[in-house]
Each structure stands twice: as structure tokens, then as C-alpha cells.
């Protein structure tokens, strides 16, 4: 049985990113990223994830992301889907 408190979106396929959002400690969001392009784009990926959380008004969560070379619009799409799923779980 899957974890019923966390929400995810995306895949581990090439050009995609798998993001998992779980409840945090209530403070600022924690973002952890693994990426095949961490050296080049790590800070940009983290910034996109944080911007998505801010845009959708979601704080105090833990985001874990495994990136396989996703474009920015894909990261945004996967974050939006995961955030909507997370909010539905916790509504």
C-alpha cells in the first residue's frame, strides 16, 4: 500500500522528473534534488520547484525530486500536478 500522506507526479524516464511532496515540519519547505545535470542546472531546478510551491501557496512540505533531464516547463508541470494531488489528499 502506498504512502497516503504524500503525493507524487512524473516518472524516471528520460526528459522527465519524479517529484514527491510529503508533509514537512511546518517551517520552510525543504527541497532535495538528484539530477543527471545537477552540476549545470541544480540551482535552477531547485528555484523552479520553490517558485511552483510559492505560486500555489504551499509551504511547510518536503519535496524530493529525481530529475532525468526535464525541461523547465516539464518541472513546472510535474510540480503543479503533485501540488494539486497533495492538496486534494490533505483537504
Amino acid at each position: 500500500m502506498g504512502n497516503t500522506t504524500q503525493a507524487s507526479a512524473g516518472t524516471l524516464e528520460s526528459n522527465d522528473i519524479l517529484v514527491v511532496i510529503a508533509p514537512g515540519n511546518g517551517g520552510e519547505a525543504t527541497v532535495s534534488v538528484e539530477s543527471i545535470v545537477m552540476k549545470q542546472f541544480g540551482p535552477a531546478i531547485i528555484a523552479t520547484i520553490q517558485a511552483s510551491l510559492a505560486e500555489h501557496g504551499l509551504g511547510g512540505v518536503t519535496v524530493t525530486a529525481q530529475d532525468k533531464g526535464a525541461l523547465d516547463c516539464t518541472i513546472k508541470a510535474r510540480m503543479e500536478a503533485a501540488i494539486l494531488r497533495y492538496k486534494e489528499l490533505h483537504s
Binding site: A9, L71, C73, K76, R78, L84
Partner: peptide, 15 residues
Amino acid sequence: KDTARILVRNTLTYL
């Protein structure tokens, strides 16, 4: 269905 719909919209919008 939900994730694909958002991905398609973003691909159209940004790419």
C-alpha cells in the same frame, strides 16, 4: 490523466 493534461498545456505554452 491529470498530469498529462498539465504537461500538454505547459508544452504548448512554453515550447
